[in-house]
Amino acid sequence: MKIVFASGKGGTGKTTIAVNLAYYLAESGKKVQYLDCDVEEPNGHLFLKPDYDNKTAVKVMVPSVDLDKCNFCGRCSAECRFNAIVTIKDKVLVFQELCHGCALCVRICPEKAISEEQREIGFIEEGSTVNGISFVQGVLNVGEPMAVPVITAVKKNFKEDYIRIIDAPPGTSCPVVKTITDADFVVFVTEPTPFGLHDLKIAMSVAINMSKLFGVVINRDGEYPPLKEYLDQEDIPVLMSVPEDRDIAEAYSRGELLLISLPGYRDHFKILADNIMKLTGKSL
């Protein structure tokens, strides 16, 4: 079972809901794996506080030019759509961070002068938490533009018979779409404001296009009828709502799990888990 947590805008509480559901399920005796795919800003560890026992580099393939074979014809530079390889007179410059690793240059070089080498762009950390949650996070090195290879690496570290809680990046960019691709269920976390609703509509369109099962968690719930009217009208299930509560903001600011500092919210997460089971028809 793969449950992806996504949100249109940042700061809606996506990570807060995801880590607490993981904690709730683990406390209920389930085998849970938390996969943090928000590789530019992985924050799940601040709350789950795992002990790491493994760290592996994420590498991508980039071209390497053998200048003894190269005749500086410039074909690689002309064909590269990413401006990642430049031919100047008797020099060939490779811009590794712009390379998408498509290997087109390798294949079309008439002199067979281009081969591939590996380049590190981030890393994966694995470990487990005190209450037995298996934890994986991907970290993209600062300044690296391409998150997708790190996200793919995180997802490859999944454990088959575990409930997988996957924290996606915010927004609807390409990495988010890729995170949602193989989800069994998508949880969109939103807040009842015009901003939240506007961004939620855009984010949900991705799940609708992919025919994914999904539902919405309303965080910091308060009086904003347009959100509920919209969800009713579109027949989108509300999985859980969490009230606006200053105590939650304070617990969050201390890096504490909601279910540890405010155990009264336990029932909320039971409802969330039950709703996901009902909608997927699978037991958690």
């Binding site: 759509r81 990413f82 498509c102 294949r107």
Partner: peptide, 13 residues
């Protein structure tokens, strides 16, 4: 289209 990076390898080859 969600997986395609637009590298053009298929196009060129």
């Amino acid at each position: 289209p969600f997986m395609c990076e637009g590298c053009g390898a298929c196009f060129a080859l």
